[in-house]
Nucleic acid binder design. Structure first.
Lengths: 228, 228
DNA sequence: GGGTCATATTTCCTATAGGATATTTTCAGC
DNA sequence: GCTGAAAATATCCTATAGGAAATATGACCC
């Protein structure tokens, strides 16, 4: 017989968010960390059991993830995680980042608030001592800091649509990078510093150039992944 | 007792697509045509009854539409159609279009296939005689042709990510334009022709300039909507 | 007459059940 | 030993039911 509401009598505090939102974040995390490997079938029922919810919110979350491009849905065969990026797709991704984030850097330099400039400078400095620590943990920390720096710049540009587009792009990148953590934190840190300096100084052209140089170098750092 | 499969004994041919996909397209159409007015609550059950399906696929479709930005979800109060664009949001939208579609025009001019160039030229010519016909029908036709032209250019640019971003932007625009059909087809047609000519001629700089001029003029044509 | 509180209704949200289809496994035949 | 088909399994997809919260309505008090 179906128990009324509480499966397992779990404590249910006042939830401010929908269950589907939590599930969305959970699954997104699983995809990002490759706990759900790329190009693999996603069993809805199993996922629902693991997360201890019914299939309905899982299905709802997967629909959103499909719009984000993290999973695909085939006609009557269920959902599949997006396969790893090909060389062409990685190039396309970085072309887009050059266009969008270059523009974002210019706008941030042109008319960001002083508070935003402060935050960007602080964040760029934060990646300093990341080299210490355990390798696995180090990489996760570095990735998070990198993402946050780029998001700060995108936000400071003052265009909601531009920020959304950049954020969406970053999701795709994470699908690639985790398998090949080749980036050296020191070099990235130096490049971020140059971008931050140009933004703080209020020089749009220099900010764009620095950001583009950073992204071009980052793309180079990703390429060895295809040589194995 | 629940009838096995057919509610109402409706003929159900072999469906190649998911029911949720059909529902998604249906609801998207309702939002685009303002059959679901902007900034209004969306009743899931009522929508399910109207479309003659169960609430589950409706819920799934709404989740995808939320990612597209056509509806919003508030914590425990259900879905709401996105409100009409403000002046600032319209400016932001056109800034993004200038950036993305300007780039798309350049890339299309640089390395589109001859088949793509042919299609673009044909489509640009197609808007010629749209002025005839009933007003309501005329506007719908014009909007569709305009969207198709821009999509062709975006596709010819050869970047899947760029095309996706542009398509996403167009959805937002439709949220505004339908209420104020001010665009004159003749002028739009002339501007499209100039863009197409530059692409066919293979002149990236000219293509970008023509596209940006077109979009700048289009933005001007939308502005009177805010003066009433 | 306006504001506030309690009640009633509507609506959302989650869980479960069952039919239809794709996929896998098994077995027979070559 | 391999290819093909057929059966069995697993999974998806849709529909329905019921509890919980938010909103709307009405009465009461100031």
């Amino acid at each position: 017989m179906p128990q009324p509401t509480s499966p397992g009598a779990r404590a249910r505090p006042v939830r401010r968010l929908t269950l589907a939102d939590d599930v969305y974040e959970s699954i997104k995390g699983l995809v990002m960390t490759h706990s759900l490997p790329p190009d693999e079938r996603v069993n809805i029922d199993a996922l629902a059991r693991d997360l201890d919810v019914s299939p309905t919110p899982v299905r709802e979350a997967l629909a959103r993830l499909e719009s984000d491009g993290l999973v695909r849905k085939r006609a009557l065969s269920g959902y599949t995680t997006t396969p790893l990026l090909t060389r062409a797709e990685l190039d396309d991704l970085f072309d887009m980042r050059l266009l969008l984030e270059g523009e974002a850097a210019a706008r941030a330099a042109a008319h960001a608030s002083s508070a935003d400039r402060q935050r960007i400078a602080t964040e760029a400095a934060a990646t300093e001592g990341v080299d210490a620590g355990v390798e696995y943990r180090r990489h996760a920390t570095f990735t998070a800091l990198d993402a946050q720096f780029h998001d700060l710049v995108a936000t400071a540009a003052g265009s909601p649509l531009l920020r959304d587009s950049i954020t969406r792009l970053h999701s795709h990148l994470h699908l690639h990078r985790l398998y090949f953590p080749a980036a050296t934190a020191a070099q990235t840190h130096a490049e971020h510093q140059r971008v931050a300096a140009a933004i703080v100084a209020g020089e749009p052209a220099a900010a764009t150039a620095a950001m583009r140089a950073h992204l071009t170098a980052a793309r180079e750092r990703h390429l060895p992944a295809f040589d194995r």
